[in-house]
Nucleic acid binder design. Structure first.
Length: 448
DNA sequence: AATGCATCCAACCGCCACGTA
DNA sequence: GTACGTGGCGGTTGGATGCAT
């Protein structure tokens, strides 16, 4: 074991054994801890420290800033430093010394997470001590035994009580996606896939709601199936998986949008927001950070994910639920036959073209090698707020058929010619001969 | 047999909503 | 009213696996 692991453990023991309990009862929150940390810093640091006002720190990230400034002081103090320690200030001082010492080994995020861990909280930021990656059978057994014995409760306390070196979130995920006894094993049946397609047309990327209509299936499972399998199949059949329209129709929509955008650009050469952007770009030197990229990514995600653009979703959902019922039984026994589904999604082989629309991973996110994206990154690093910027950016650059909500019509009769399409794969589609299709194995989907 | 590429999927991450003190 | 803890969700990642060369 290297020193980077040895030191924290020793110090953790020291703190906990001395007066951690006393400290925890005195300080209600992590913020208070940091407050005391600062006071101790001032008490024992002869050199002036330029710290930001604590009151301005309202989030944990601000605590990080405070911590990082504390850590940016002189060289680490040896932990054996013979400084006067009272009972009251001992934990804070130890924490201070500890954090400053750890600064020689870890980044500030790790240290902040470690401090949070000492306070008795589980922090997902602190990854050094928690296991990650695939679960071992032993871990599965521990979790399963614990939940079987104690039932579902507070996930954050489960790892500790179950003896697992995992975070609560990880335990929850493992239980929901794998260990839950009511999970249906095996591949998806053709009926299930069809139902997923139909639900996706109505609900978009709201996987949890889709999963609620498929008993025994998890949202993660359905999401993976969609991304790896169904999407591809739909495209092969000339259907845009995002809009559930035919690809040719989507292309037409896109051209129309492009024309509209061009017209509006002719009328207004530079909109005020763009002027602001230029001004901000000139005045503010580029200080590209991952944070700015995240902002853009987040906004893009909200705008482009099928399930997030949901202005019309509730009524459609109601229509759908009226039709299929809200219970699993009714949803699966209603009109969900493959032929019915064919009517909703007449597979059009025809002019399949790759979808060129911007994806979620749009390169508009910061790319240091790209001048155009750099521009955008600068914009978001300026003092301007994203809402000011986005409308102009999104209007001119983010036009894509993905914006279109799935338009679902519910015809009463289906197209009898659909099934006779002899394109490669169409018959397979109907016959349910997907590579992973072993629907007969579970049998439970036969009620659909 | 070795290598490279594609695909799958379990798990992680960040964000958000909600309840509570 | 506010800060905090927790659970839930959707997007994304990266390791494992399969397949082609």
């Amino acid at each position: 074991m290297g020193p980077t692991l040895l030191w924290p453990r020793m110090l953790t023991w020291t703190i906990q054994e001395s007066s951690m309990l006393l400290w925890k009862t005195m300080c209600k929150s992590e913020a208070t801890i940091f407050n005391h940390l600062l006071s101790v810093t001032f008490l024992f640091e002869p050199a002036p420290i330029n710290l930001i006002p604590y009151q301005a720190a309202t989030s944990f990230s601000s605590h990080h800033s405070i911590l990082s400034r504390s850590l940016s002081l002189s060289s680490p103090i040896p932990i054996t430093s013979p400084l006067p320690i009272t009972h009251f200030k001992a934990p804070a001082l130890l924490l201070l010394l500890l954090t400053r010492y750890l600064a020689t080994f870890f980044c500030r995020n790790c240290i902040a997470g470690f401090v949070a861990l000492l306070m008795g909280r589980h922090s997902c930021c602190y990854k050094q001590k928690l296991r990650k990656g695939l679960w071992s059978p032993e871990e599965d057994e521990k979790l399963l035994n614990y939940i079987t014995k104690h039932g579902l409760g507070c996930w954050s306390s489960v790892p500790k009580l179950a003896g697992l070196q995992r975070c609560g979130k990880s335990c929850r995920l493992r239980w929901i996606n794998y260990l839950r006894p009511d999970l249906k094993r095996g591949a998806f049946s053709q009926q299930e896939e069809n139902l997923i397609i139909e639900l996706h047309a109505v609900l978009g990327n709201r996987w949890s709601q889709i999963a609620a209509q498929l008993p025994g299936r998890t949202d993660n499972e359905i999401k993976n199936l969609w991304n790896s399998c169904i999407k591809k199949k739909l495209r092969q059949r000339g259907i845009d998986p995002n809009t559930h329209k035919s690809l040719s129709e989507v292309e037409n929509d896109k051209e129309k949008q492009q024309l509209t955008a061009d017209k509006s650009n002719e009328n207004v050469s530079i909109v005020p927001n763009e002027l602001n952007l230029i001004e901000a770009t000139i005045l503010k030197p580029p200080a590209v950070s991952s944070r700015s990229s995240n902002v853009i990514t987040t906004i893009n995600n909200k705008d482009w994910s099928g399930g997030s653009n949901l202005t019309n979703a509730p009524p459609k959902q109601e229509i759908f639920l009226d039709r299929f019922g809200t219970s699993h039984e009714s949803s699966t026994t209603a009109s969900c036959s493959p032929s019915d589904l064919m009517a909703y999604f007449p597979f059009q082989k025809l002019d399949y073209k790759p979808i060129i629309g911007l994806s979620m991973n749009t390169k508009l996110c910061y790319n240091p090698n790209s001048s155009s994206s750099e521009m955008i990154s600068h914009e978001f690093n300026s003092s301007m707020t994203p809402p000011t910027v986005l409308p102009s950016v999104s209007a001119s650059m983010f036009q894509t058929p993905i914006c279109v909500r799935p338009s679902v019509s519910l015809p009463s009769d289906h197209n009898p010619t659909v099934g006779s399409c002899d394109v490669n794969g169409v018959q397979n589609w109907e016959a349910g001969s997907f590579s992973n299709n072993v629907s007969g194995s579970n049998g439970s989907s036969s009620s659909i």
